[in-house]
């Protein structure tokens, strides 16, 4: 009996390390795939080069880095205020039955496949932008709008949890002093939930940077650094997905190297999110 218990524990530990091992394996293979070309071209040349023509030996991914930043920034600007407002509404204002209706709706929004978002962006948003604002329609703006909707559930649900975790005494104390609901939210609830909300925003940022298919369908995918929200744009993720299917040799390696850059950005964001959330917990 004791030996049995001991054995189970060992087996569980080994299985529990599967996620960490997988992470290590992912890092190993992506780096092994991408580092040779990085060494050959030079990290600086690769990151700061503005010309991407891999079949002719130009491996600069600055347009894609800029593209990811533009699109992600746009998604945050458009999505975070609405997401935060939803979270505040759900946690501070909505009655129980209303909340019970809206929360699952948001979860459903998170469950809709990203290709569906991209497709609707393609058939609704792109023509709309083309007609109303000019340009090709395939643009930073279109991608940002689609991503804003896609990160909405993540940011909302993490912020909601952070707001719910604020003790009721914070609210009661403020309301008892004659503050209005909005004053209470702004001066006492929001500051207390700050780190949790920040963690939610960073999580949403990771989602936006990492999203691929939806962005490909609406962004236009030109390898130029965009100067206006109406310019077409290609992100790091799109760059990989668009060309991996047919690339070979050094071209393929350059795509793996793009993956390395993306992996490092995401791990960096993970660490920041972890630190922010950790600070929130310790307080």
């Amino acid at each position: 009996m004791k030996g049995w218990e001991w054995l189970i524990r060992r087996v569980l530990v080994v299985m529990a390390f599967s996620s960490l091992s997988l992470l290590a394996l992912i890092a190993l293979f992506i780096f092994a795939g991408g580092v040779p070309i990085l060494a050959e071209v030079g990290v600086e040349q690769f990151l700061l080069g503005t010309r991407w023509a891999p079949t002719r030996g130009h491996y600069g991914i600055l347009p894609m880095i800029a593209g990811s930043l533009w699109v992600t920034g746009g998604a945050l600007v458009l999505g975070v205020p609405i997401a935060l407002a939803c979270a505040i509404y759900l946690s501070e204002i909505a009655s129980e039955p209303v909340g019970r209706l809206i929360k699952p709706a948001l979860e459903l929004l998170a469950g809709i496949p990203s290709v569906v978002y991209g497709f609707l962006g393609l058939v609704i948003l792109v023509p709309l932008i083309r007609v109303l604002l000019g340009g090709p329609g395939f643009s930073v703006l279109a991608a940002s709008c689609v991503l804003a909707v896609m990160i909405l559930p993540t940011v909302t649900s993490v912020s909601y949890d952070a707001l719910r975790a604020v003790p009721a005494t914070y609210r009661e104390g403020s309301l008892a002093l004659g503050a209005t609901r909005w004053q209470t939210i702004r001066m006492s609830v929001l500051p207390a939930a700050r780190s949790g909300i920040l963690a939610g925003i960073i999580l949403g940022m990771g989602r936006a940077i990492g999203e691929t298919m939806a962005v490909i369908m609406v962004a236009g995918n030109a390898t130029l650094i965009p100067v206006s929200p109406l310019d077409p744009v290609r992100t790091l993720t799109s760059n990989i997905a668009l060309e991996l299917g047919y690339a070979a040799g050094k071209h393929r390696e350059a795509l793996f190297a793009t993956g390395v850059v993306l992996f490092l950005i995401i791990m960096g964001l993970n660490l920041v999110a972890e630190a922010v959330a950790g600070r929130g917990r310790s307080r």
Binding site: L22, I30, A273
Partner: peptide, 28 residues
């Protein structure tokens, strides 16, 4: 320490974009 490592692995994996999984699956 063991738990911290496992949690780090799980949390990080949750943040990895699907295209990275795609590239990894392709390579591996």
């Amino acid at each position: 320490r063991t738990v911290a490592l496992i949690r780090f692995g799980t949390e990080s994996l949750a943040g990895i974009p699907s295209i990275i999984f795609g590239v990894f699956g392709f390579l591996f």
